[in-house]
Design a protein around this nucleic acid. Structure first.
Lengths: 140, 140
DNA sequence: ACTTGCTCCTCTAGCGACTAGAGGATGCAA
DNA sequence: TTGCATCCTCTAGTCGCTAGAGGAGCAAGT
């Protein structure tokens, strides 16, 4: 459990070795003690922190947001409005992204469906891209 | 219509001035002729091309894909299977992204909804991030 | 003891698609 | 002529890694 080398914590946390070193470099993960031979030795706390980071990254949180989240986690007596705010902002962003991807999906489906695989001259894909007014959604 | 300076083509195409110069630099947009005073002078063709690029970028196509699409557009006699393929790939990608964003949305909603705005110690947001097994979706 | 092969170290540079800023030239109207 | 907007080139920065060079450490097998 304790004194893992970087390869092991990488396997356990599912975070790649260079990424772990990068997180140390930018101060997201504290620099661990080293072995006699100058190798990083990680403990259970580091694994927890790294898993937290990875999970947050998977959810699309940016490094800066994670930094805030980690500070909050380290100080459990603080009011949690800030953490809640970060999650709320992210949720709004995700909703926006879903919406525009749905519009895009429709547009792509129209392109792909309409193409009879002849030559480029008649291609719906190129045509839609070239003549914007033929789009389903004109706001972009 | 013809001999627009960069600012005007920027306004018309909705592509920012430095981005236009960047596109020229990477060979996506041909280098236009210059005025006596060394200023770029664009014509209607350039505006079309830039609008095409912008539209494709909005739709999430990468620069490399756009490069291919532009080559196809320049050669209307070629078979359009390639353009169709690019659009199909993009559609699959968009569907994937929508799916994972929907999962993410659920997870964020659970975080935000469950939090009673007390102190960090009881915060759902932090807790979910720290304890992965409490997620709605465990595959990530 | 020696070799093999893996993991680890630091360091620098690169990715995509821009964006920002310095420092200067040009164009046009009042 | 003065002032201001627009334009020019060039370099460096953004984000979140990723790749590669060149070398050192470590554990197991012969």
């Amino acid at each position: 459990m304790t004194d893992m080398p970087i390869g092991e914590i990488s396997r356990r946390s599912q975070v790649k070795v260079p990424t772990i070193r990068y997180y140390e470099q930018i101060g997201l993960l504290p620099a661990p003690p080293r072995s006699e031979g100058n190798r990083r030795l990680y403990g259970a706390r580091d694994l927890k922190r790294l898993s937290f980071i990875r999970h947050a990254r998977d959810l699309g949180f940016e490094i800066d947001a994670i930094r805030t989240l980690l500070t909050l986690q380290d100080n459990p007596a603080m009011p949690c409005a800030e953490a809640d705010g970060i999650a709320r902002d992210k949720l709004a962003e995700v909703n926006d992204r879903i919406e525009s991807l749905m519009a895009l999906k429709e547009e792509l489906e129209a392109m792909v469906g309409g193409c009879g695989h002849n030559c480029v001259g008649d291609c719906r894909v190129i045509e839609v891209l070239a003549n914007h007014h033929k789009c389903l959604h004109t706001e972009h």
